[in-house]
């Protein structure tokens, strides 16, 4: 069973993080919690794409146009990644039905 977390929602970067590029990978640090995050190369691109509120479907559209990946695979893996980000409060989720 696929995990299509947040597919019907929009997501946007949360504030309060120091972000930097290191060898093509996006790294972040929370001043509040002292936690450091490495988003990797693909995660860094996702982070760039959600600088403004973006639906997950639109995010997947962009990624499948830029990367060699089938849409169902991309959708599932991106939704899992966003779930991890959401748990760490790195992103804010906007319910489009509200």
């Amino acid at each position: 069973m696929t995990n299509l977390y947040l597919v019907e929602h929009a997501v946007v970067q949360a504030e309060g993080y120091i972000v930097s590029d290191m060898n093509g990978e996006k790294v972040m640090m929370s001043v509040d919690t002292g936690k450091y995050y490495n988003l990797g190369r693909i995660g860094g691109r996702i982070w760039e794409l959600i600088a403004w509120p973006t639906t997950v479907n639109r995010l997947v559209d962009t990624l499948t146009s830029e990367y060699d990946v089938e849409r169902p695979v991309c959708e599932e893996q991106v939704s899992g990644f966003l779930q991890s980000m959401h748990k760490e409060a790195l992103i804010e989720v906007i319910n489009l039905e509200a």
Binding site: M29, T33, G34, K35, Y36, Y37, N38, L39, G40, R41, I42, G43, I46, S65, E66, Y67, D68, V69, C74, Q77, V78, F81, S84, M85, E88, L90
Partner: peptide, 20 residues
Amino acid sequence: MENRTKQQWQVPTLETLDVS
């Protein structure tokens, strides 16, 4: 017809490290 070379995909992962 689109003929752009696409980049290699990798599974996006979130690594965390508590610096303190």
